[in-house]
């Protein structure tokens, strides 16, 4: 059966955006997530750097922060540290320094976005980052007012 779709070029471009570019763009972003009981709804990118290098160990409420990240170099990890403007190894070295000298709680690591989101969803004080499609029962917060970072 032959179907002849005679589409308007503008409509065709919209379709391309919807079905090709948008999913790629969505994949290119990560959402920062916390536990639902966490009152934090927005962090600045400077806050985020401070958290993932161990300088900021408490949320504004005073509760201790638990960093949640990935065991391996997943897409979310690459995108997150790329957006942060820091190499993963630099952040890891900064955290190790804080762990050894200041008793910082070691990051909790998982293999997948779903595991990260699942842990954050059940752990008050946890903060992680996942593909927006994997937020699940955790609470996504904004960074510099944006829902996702890229």
């Amino acid at each position: 059966m032959n179907v002849n779709l005679n589409l308007n070029p503008i409509f065709r471009a919209v379709l391309v955006c919807l079905f090709v570019i948008a999913p790629v763009a969505l994949q290119a972003q990560v959402a920062v997530i916390v536990h639902k009981s966490n009152a934090t709804s927005n962090l600045s990118s400077a806050d985020l750097k401070s958290i993932f290098t161990g300088d900021m160990t408490k949320f504004a409420s005073g509760s201790n922060i638990t960093i949640v990240t990935y065991k391996s170099d997943t897409d979310s990890r690459k995108k997150f540290y790329g957006a942060l403007g820091k190499k993963f190894t630099e952040c890891q070295a900064a955290l190790l320094k804080r762990m050894m000298n200041d008793g910082l709680k070691p990051p909790v690591t998982f293999d997948s976005d779903d595991d990260v989101a699942g842990y954050v969803a059940k752990t008050p004080g946890a903060i992680g980052f996942v593909n927006p499609a994997s937020v699940g029962a955790a609470k996504a917060i904004t960074v510099d007012g944006k829902k996702q970072i890229d």
Binding site: K58, N64, G103, K105
Partner: peptide, 18 residues
């Protein structure tokens, strides 16, 4: 070999032994 034991006690106290 360096072995560390650390922890939080409540939200304001923590300890470290190395």
């Amino acid at each position: 070999f360096n072995l560390f034991v650390s922890g939080n006690i409540g939200s304001e106290w923590k300890y470290l032994a190395e």
